[in-house]
Design a protein around this nucleic acid. Structure first.
Lengths: 106, 106
DNA sequence: TTATTAGTTTACAAATATATGAACTAATAA
DNA sequence: TTATTAGTTCATATATTTGTAAACTAATAA
């Protein structure tokens, strides 16, 4: 497998994270699995839209899905997803703080 | 700041990671800063394209830029970016391994 | 059998991201 | 002053992603 192919697959995993609704879903699934309708209730919006985003995340390899008698359960494929997401959140918070500091000193 | 706004900003940071060329740039900058022309030499392609991708990454807050007499130096804004990127790479590698195992048992 | 539940899939329009090449800018060199 | 270097910015065509609504599917209930 060429490094170009690795970069492409790696970017696909990162893309699975790169949408506000998908970030919200990761937040919801952080400590435990949830079924589709619970996620929908928490995020709001159309079920078709949520279903498509969950599909992007599952194909990207950051979510797992488990079919149950009455509903479909989604969970993070790995603890690493939550950790990476938390690190990116820290990068955001650090930048917001830096920005605020800069404004204060003007 | 509403949680919706946080999710949007958080997604912007993640988007800054979500492209093969940008993943390659993070790999290049992992241990030390590089100037624009060195990055261009390593990645290939058009300078205008690289410049725009570096701009996306800088605006997203994952890169810093430092202007020098003869060239512009780029570096990761934080060690956290490299860590998050490495975690996502691990998620990819774990998934590829799982997939390979599944194929072996068919 | 027919209806209901719990989603998924499809079709498509609108929005966004990307690649390319040309034009531009700022700093230094000749 | 006129080049040259080292990029950045702009214009634009293409490609990809996203949101919406309707149609579909599978499993259970009446």
């Amino acid at each position: 497998m060429s490094s170009r192919e690795i970069f492409e697959l790696h970017a696909d995993v990162c893309k699975a994270l790169a949408h506000p609704l998908r970030i919200e879903v990761i937040d919801i699934l952080r400590e435990k699995e949830h079924c589709f309708s619970d996620i929908l209730e928490k995020t709001g919006g159309l079920k078709s839209n949520l279903s498509q985003h969950l599909s992007v995340m599952t194909k990207g390899g950051i979510l797992k899905m488990r079919r149950d008698a009455q509903c479909n359960y989604y969970s993070l494929s790995s603890e690493k997803v939550a950790k990476a997401c938390a690190l990116m959140r820290e990068v955001l918070v650090d930048n917001l703080k830096k920005h605020k500091e800069m404004l204060k000193h003007i």
